[in-house]
Amino acid sequence: MNSVVTRTWSAVLFDLDGTILDSAPGIIAALTDTFKFLGLPVPSRDEFMAYIGPPLLASLQERAGLPADKAQEALEIYRRDFRRDGAFNSAVFPGVIGLFESLRDAGVPLAIATSKPEDQARAILDHFELTDYFTTIAGASESDARTSKAHVVGHALAQLTAQGADVSQAVLVGDRIYDVEGAAAHDVPTIIVEWGYGSPEEAKGAIATVYSADRLRELLLG
């Protein structure tokens, strides 16, 4: 096996949606309500799946074809709806909590790097009693000044460093091409989880693809 994959990692960053949580039901329900409220044609479930992972403002512009002001309005409506009804309509993927416990026992610092707003991500992690596993929780800013995955990964690395963690051998675990590209902007490799929302083509830039939490544990801890 490639030594790049089996080396000792000094810190592990995790995406949230599609990596830790199966959050599609709540996200799609809130998106459906948003499109209906704005009188827009409602995409199919499969089409909505492509909205999960990348910054939503960009998806609303690029996929729904909304101008910047209309996309911002849609984002604000979505966030209100999601906070009210969809934020906790998720489930933790099998084996993930055991993986976190193993990494914590090994003394590996963990971070969340998500395109969700940071306060929203923290509330969700609190709800599922996952917050204590993480040294830092990094997400998008409410002002949308920090929206891209590269910005979020950079923020997570800076926060880890500020708390004394070694990020010289950091790795990101995610499920979409946006995770791969965002991490690569900081020379951080990515491991893709097959249980997420991405297609096989999105994993081409990753150093590995895993099919189970047990296999991921092997790559992260040896």
Rank of each mutant, 00 (worst) to 15 (best):
M1T: 07
N2Q: 11
T6H: 12
R7H: 15
F14T: 04
F14R: 03
L16G: 00
D17A: 07
D17Y: 03
D17M: 04
G18F: 03
G18L: 05
G18Q: 02
I20F: 13
S23Y: 06
I27G: 04
I27C: 08
I28V: 12
I28E: 02
A29N: 11
A30M: 11
D33Q: 15
T34W: 06
T34Q: 04
F35V: 02
K36D: 14
G39Q: 06
P41Y: 04
V42D: 01
S44F: 01
R45F: 10
A50V: 10
A50L: 08
Y51P: 00
P54T: 06
L56I: 01
L57F: 01
L57G: 00
A58Q: 11
S59P: 03
S59T: 11
Q61V: 00
E62M: 05
E62A: 09
A68C: 13
A68Y: 15
K70Q: 09
Q72T: 13
Q72K: 08
A74L: 06
R79K: 11
F82V: 07
R84L: 15
D85S: 13
G86F: 10
G86H: 09
A87N: 13
A91E: 13
V92R: 01
F93S: 05
P94M: 10
G95I: 04
G98L: 07
E101F: 06
S102R: 15
S102F: 05
L103A: 01
R104T: 02
D105R: 05
A106K: 05
A106L: 08
G107K: 00
P109E: 03
P109F: 05
L110I: 08
L110R: 00
A111Y: 00
I112Y: 01
S115E: 03
E118C: 07
E118S: 12
Q120H: 15
A121E: 08
R122Q: 15
A123V: 15
T131C: 11
Y133H: 06
T135Q: 14
T135A: 15
T135K: 10
T136P: 00
T136Q: 02
G139C: 04
A140D: 05
A140T: 01
D144T: 15
R146W: 12
T147D: 12
K149M: 11
V152P: 01
G154F: 09
G154D: 13
G154V: 14
H155Y: 14
H155G: 06
A156I: 12
A156Y: 07
A158M: 11
Q159W: 01
L160W: 07
L160G: 10
A165M: 06
S168A: 14
Q169G: 13
A170H: 04
V171Y: 06
V171D: 07
G174S: 02
D179M: 10
V180D: 00
V180R: 01
V180K: 02
G182H: 08
G182P: 03
A183F: 13
A184T: 11
A185S: 15
D187N: 09
P189H: 05
T190S: 08
T190V: 06
I191L: 01
I192Q: 00
Y197M: 12
E201W: 12
E202K: 03
E202R: 08
A203K: 12
K204Q: 14
K204A: 13
A208C: 06
A208Q: 07
T209D: 10
V210A: 11
D214A: 13
L216S: 09
L219V: 09
G222N: 12
